[in-house]
Amino acid sequence: MAQLASALAIMIMGVLGCAAYFYGSNFLLDKLFPTKDRPYEQIARNLRTANMVRPWLFLGPAVLLLTFYLFYPVIDSFRLSFFDRTGDEFVGLSNYVWLFGSDEFFESFRNNMLWLIVVPTAATFFGLIIATMTDRIWWGNIAKSLIFMPMAISFIGASVIWKFIYDFRSGDDAQIGLLNAIVVFFGGEPQNWITIPFWNNFFLMIILVWIQTGFAMVILSAALRGIPDETIEAAVLDGANGLQIFFKIMVPQIWGTIAVVWTTITILVLKVFDIVLAMTNGQWDTQVLANQMFDWMFRGGGDFGRGAVVAIVIMVLVIPIMIWNIKRANAEMEGR
């Protein structure tokens, strides 16, 4: 109970402190540069000053936080990648030399590429299929809601759920993992799925596909509903069948949205870490970049230099998407 009370107190203080900043700073600004009951010239001057300052009062905390938590670390990671394990001694390119010479890196790079190909493709594919089909049936919304549900589950929670499905019992014991039970039911040999090199990657990917399909479905479903009915009706009149309508009329019209879904999931995949950590911790050839980086940060007291090098690789992979995003946002703003 005492813990609960102190937690509550900390929470309230944190939130109030934040609110107090905004109130206080704006109040102060209004007091310093009053715009009421003064001569016109003074009002004009004060107003100009206040209008110059106020955006930065509004933006201040956001800019500071973004700088400290995202912008500065990107720069500093770059710097650290040229330093030794403690970050004190300049070692030139030796971290990079080590990275490109290590088998572990190539393993995780290969695995990351597999993830990048399989997960966005599968999630977008299933999302599109489900979105199309659920739009036509009366219980579609319930179906969507259930398929969307894994979105709310943490990666680690999902890992437990799926670890349970992949559970393996040796010998003649009854299998309590669903997958092995099905295999046995059809007369197969039970397997310890997550220890089979190479293929185990796919068993881990299934977890992320399971989580992300709902996201793809929701967005694609909205896009599908945005397609003007007239275009579909026109295609029907032109004698197109269901599949032709889907591939030649509907899919091309939501191409932009598919690209957005795809890239969003791609970014997520690059950061995937929890699933691998919880399922295998990179054993049995399932290492990925994010987990490898985390590993180097803490392994044997941590090696900041090598961890930073892996981080830089992830960053480089993200940059094309970042540029594409900024371009898209700019085009959007000009459209306004």
Binding site: Y40, I43, L47
Partner: peptide, 11 residues
């Protein structure tokens, strides 16, 4: 009769 170029709308 007052130049209001720099005066805010409300005033």
């Amino acid at each position: 009769g007052q130049v209001v170029n720099d005066i805010p709308p409300a005033l």
